[in-house]
Every structure is written in C-alpha cells, then in structure tokens.
C-alpha cells in the first residue's frame, strides 16, 4: 500500500515538474511575441490613443473651447452666434497682455503697456457682445436662463477652474503647443506655480521639439520667474533661429501671431542690458514695423543711438 502510494506521489511530482517546465517554455515563447504584437498594435500610445484615435483631436479642441468658455464664466458664442476667431478670446486677451510686455521686463509695471492692454481688452469686450439686441420676446426672456452678460474669471480660485480643461486638452492632443503654453501662462502668472508650469512646458517641448511657442514661453518663465536671464537669452535666440528656419520667406500673416515681435523685443532688451547697443538697435529696427507701439520703440532706438555715440572710439 505504501509502495503504491509512493509510486503515485512520484508520478504526481514528475507531472508537476513537467508542468512547470512546460509553463516556463510556453511563457518564454509567448512573451516576446506578445511584446511584438502589443508594440505593433499600440507602440508607445496610451490606451485612450488606441481607443479614440483621431477623435482625440476633436475632443482636445472641444476642451480648449470649454476652458475659454470658463474664462468668460459661461458667456460664450455658439456656432450660431459666429465667434470672431477660432483661437478663442482667451488667447487674444493673453496676446494683448504679452504685447504690453514687449518693452518691459515681466512683472514690472508699465503704464503705457497697461493702457495698451486695457485698450485691447476693451475692444475685445465690444466684439464679445455677440448676442446683440434680442430679436423677439422669447429670446429676451430666454436670456434670464443662461449666462448672457460678459464677465471674466478673476480670483486665483476661479482661474484654477480652467486648468482641468487645459490639461485634458493637452493630454488629448499633445501636438497642440497652445494647450501647453496657455496652461503654463495661467500657472505661473496667476497661480504662481512655477515648478508645475516648467514641468508641463518641458513635457510639451519633449513632444513638440520644433514648437517656437513653447520655447518662447519657457524662456519667459526662466527670465521672469527663475531670474535666469542667461538661459532665457539663449532660449530666445534659439527660438528666433528656429522661427527664421521655419519661415525662410515670412509673409505678413506669419508676423500676425506676435511670436517674432515678442522674441525681437525681449532679445533687444537683454542685449541692451548687456551693453550690446548695436545689436539691440538692430533688433529694435526689425521690430519697429511689426509692433503697434511704434512711438515707444522709436524713442528706444533714439536712446540706443545716443548711447552708441557716447561710446568712445577705440584708440
């Protein structure tokens, strides 16, 4: 009895051993094939990329619009109200703010720039009155039931409310530099979350290495928030070089996005600080036809010329 039990136990042990070997062999055969299969199926893509495909771009666009809608506290044109532009009034407002910063370092008050900004915003407010007068009593009455007056998010807590939509937009379509730039703008300027803004921008830059917009925003962050003018200068220069390469024969439309304006203005300012007046004057000369603040730039050019003249000639 004992010997037969031992016999059975030995067989079971042998069977288990064979089973273990068989499993190990099967695993070593299956694993590399599965890896190849999964990489050919999804590559480095996330699950949502595999499932949603190009629909993600539409969603990203929708999330950007949603952030813009939140910025205006729900007062937002529908497709029937014919919005003024596709990029969204939030981006326009930021551009107006950036324009005002051409001739001054970020964070410092500049009366002229401030006025420019408010002028721009005022124009935008007038444009934003997309509802007009009600056409009939139903429309007039219906305006009590949706956000029908223009207002902006103002407090820090309110600005935070934009972030989920911007983050989702960037995650849905990471090839959109504007999602990274806008998010960084609000994070560093309004919420003072510089570390988060820099990490997010660098993540965007890794995905979009040719994006001049992201480079410009990162350089602004380094200059204004990290107080690292040298690295910011290098990045502005690199961004300008990249922009020149991307636009070998720039048209008027290329200048409309204000990127080159901002780059020229910021590099000129840093060059002036370093005492490179000739290069600063050259850059401001290029900026003059592009900028709306012509008189101010002309004055700066004149001041630079005076400084150049004051330099004693080498003996």
């Amino acid at each position: 009895m004992n010997s037969s039990e031992d016999h059975v136990a030995a067989r079971v042990r042998f069977g288990l051993l064979v089973g273990v070997f068989a499993c190990a062999t099967a695993a070593s055969w299956v694993q590399p094939r599965l890896e190849v299969l999964s990489s050919s199926y999804s590559g480095n893509r996330s699950v949502s990329e595999v499932i949603l495909g190009d629909f993600r771009q539409l969603m990203a666009n929708q999330f950007m619009l949603k952030a813009d809608e939140y910025f205006h506290s729900g007062y937002y044109p529908s497709i029937f109200d014919q919005p003024k532009n596709k990029s969204g009034v939030m981006s326009e407002e930021i551009r107006a703010d950036e324009r005002s910063a051409f001739s001054k370092p970020e964070g410092k008050d500049d009366h002229h720039g401030h006025d420019d900004h408010h002028e721009g915003v005022h124009e935008e407010h007038e444009e934003a009155d997309f509802l007009g007068k009600p056409r009939d009593f139903i429309e007039a009455f219906g305006r009590h039931f949706f956000a029908s007056t223009h207002s902006h998010l103002e407090s820090e807590q309110e600005i935070k409310e934009l972030l989920p939509w911007l983050k989702l937009a960037a995650e849905m379509d990471s090839t959109r530099p504007d999602a990274f730039v806008l998010t960084s703008y609000w994070l560093r300027k309004e919420l003072r979350k510089v570390d988060e803004a820099e990490a997010f921008l660098r993540q965007g830059w890794r995905i979009n290495p040719n994006s001049v917009e992201i480079m410009l925003e990162l350089a602004k962050l380094l200059e204004a928030d990290r107080k690292d003018e040298e690295r910011a200068h290098n990045l502005y220069e690199a961004a300008l070089t990249k922009w020149m390469r991307q636009h070998p024969h720039p048209t008027e439309a290329d200048y409309e996005d204000t990127i080159v304006e901002q780059l020229l203005g910021r590099i000129a300012r840093i060059e002036e600080k370093k005492g490179n007046y000739v290069r600063a004057e050259l850059l401001l000369g290029k900026l003059l036809p592009l900028s709306p603040a012509k008189s101010e730039i002309s004055e700066q050019i004149a001041a630079l010329r005076a400084k150049i003249k004051a330099i004693p000639a080498p003996k």
């Binding site: 935070k160 409310e161 972030l163 989920p164 997010f200």
Partner: peptide, 13 residues
C-alpha cells in the same frame, strides 16, 4: 479624486 497640477480644489468641472 483627480488632482490637476498638485491641486484638487477645482470644483466647476
């Protein structure tokens, strides 16, 4: 429960 940029106090979304 999701936190956006180390902040989870957003409510409107």
């Amino acid at each position: 429960s999701i936190s956006f940029f180390n902040d989870s106090s957003m409510a409107r979304y």
